[in-house]
Simulated scan of single mutants.
Amino acid sequence: MLSQRMTNIKWKLLFYFGLSTLLVLVGFIAAIHYLIDWLQTPELLLSVLAALLLLGLAVGFFAARKVQRGIDKLHLSMIELAQGNWSNRLAADPADSFHQLYRDFNEMAYAVENRLQLLQKSAEERVLETHSSEKAVTEERKRLARDLHDTVSQQLFAIHMSAASLPKLIELKSDAAAPIIEQLTQMSHHAQKQIRGLIAQLRPIELEGVSLQEGLDRWFPDYCRQNVLQGRLELRLPEPLSEAMEHQLFLIVQEGMANVVKHASAGSVVLSIMDAGHQVMLQIEDDGQGFSKIEVNTHSYGLTTMRERAQKLGGQLEIASKPGTGTTLKVKIPKFKET
């Protein structure tokens, strides 16, 4: 079948080639027959031959351009599919040589889209099945958060208060003790800030009974405030997402924000989630120290976890960063229409 379709295109190219050759021969014969008296010099003869050759090349060029447009159209559609737009289809004109090829492409895209949609639905069902076990883990994290708050956090606060009062107790060697006291005060304050961030991570809010947008409206500002970040939240979700997709996106956001706090040394962060029609796009952009691609540890737990959560729903994770320019994390998950 494929050889037959390529044969049709081959015969069409041969037709244009034969037409251009025929035009050159007919033109040459006509010139010899009717303009023989004018073609007495080699210069005139060469001029006529050059004009006829250009005519043949023009016919061949327009024929090749038409074929190239058909190939470019197919190529662009393949790129659209590779970028996640599985709803893209080619208009197949029966008069076009690429008609059957376009039809086969559309059938292939339709089949792959259906398979990916079934895969995504299957993954969503598995996510919901494991949701109950994740709830148990979340409850344990909440318990740990309460224990840490009642013990370690209060102890660190006591260390901070004691260190701050030491200058009043040490008067004889105040010059030598002052730098150490200042360092101790800063270290204890920093440790207290870190433990508060850990408590916030161990005690995440759940999406039970609320949408992803409502959950992030509550969680994101509070998380940024606790970690001294200037945060901006941009959500454009005109239609509700599936429960499984919202759950996975929420967990990816938590992991991504934890990475910003731990590694980026950022002052501001922008979290955006938008519905692009054929896919849902999540982006976390910070103004931190960034890193080079060589420094990226693709096997780190945080990146691996986020990548696996995206892949569960047929999506992908991308990271763009350079030293001194911050980091941008993107997650793209295909969104299918019900068929």
Results as ranks from 00 to 15, higher is better:
Gln4Tyr: 09
Thr7Glu: 14
Leu13Lys: 10
Tyr16Asp: 05
Tyr16Gly: 07
Ser20Val: 00
Val24Phe: 06
Val24Ala: 13
Val26Gly: 03
Phe28Asn: 11
Ala30Pro: 03
Ala30Val: 04
Ile32Pro: 01
His33Phe: 15
Ile36Asn: 13
Leu45Gln: 15
Ala50Cys: 04
Leu53Gly: 13
Leu54Thr: 00
Gly56Gln: 08
Ala58Leu: 06
Ala58Tyr: 09
Ala58Arg: 04
Phe61Lys: 05
Phe62His: 07
Gln68Glu: 13
Leu76Phe: 09
Met78Gly: 09
Leu81Gly: 02
Asn85Val: 00
Trp86Thr: 01
Ser87Leu: 00
Ser87Phe: 04
Asn88Met: 09
Arg89Glu: 11
Ala91Leu: 03
Asp96Ser: 12
Ser97Gly: 07
Asp104Arg: 05
Phe105Gln: 02
Glu107Met: 03
Glu107Val: 01
Ala109Val: 01
Glu113Pro: 03
Gln117Val: 00
Gln120Pro: 01
Glu124Lys: 05
Leu128Pro: 02
Arg141Phe: 15
Arg141Gln: 12
Arg143Gly: 02
Arg146Gly: 13
Leu148Lys: 03
Gln154Ile: 10
Ile159Tyr: 08
Met161Leu: 11
Ser162Arg: 08
Pro167Ser: 14
Lys168Phe: 15
Glu171Arg: 14
Leu172Lys: 10
Asp175Gly: 14
Ala176His: 12
Glu182Thr: 11
Gln183Pro: 02
Leu184Pro: 03
Ser188Asn: 07
Ser188Cys: 10
His189Pro: 02
His189Asn: 11
Gln192Phe: 04
Gln192Arg: 09
Ile195Pro: 01
Leu207Lys: 14
Gly209Glu: 05
Gln213Ser: 13
Leu216His: 12
Arg218Leu: 12
Arg218Cys: 04
Trp219Gln: 08
Leu229Ile: 00
Arg236Lys: 11
Arg236Val: 06
Leu237Pro: 15
His247Lys: 10
Gln248Asp: 15
Gln248Gly: 08
Leu251Asp: 08
Ile252Cys: 11
Glu255Asn: 02
Ser272Phe: 01
Gln279Tyr: 06
Gln283Lys: 04
Asp286Lys: 04
Asp287Glu: 06
Gly290Tyr: 06
Thr298Asp: 06
Ser300Leu: 00
Gly302Phe: 03
Leu303Pro: 06
Leu303Trp: 07
Thr304Trp: 09
Arg307Asp: 15
Gln311Ile: 00
Gln316Leu: 08
Glu318Gly: 07
Pro323Met: 10
Gly326Val: 00
Thr327Cys: 08
Thr328Val: 04
Leu329Pro: 01
Leu329Met: 05
Lys332Thr: 06
Ile333Met: 07
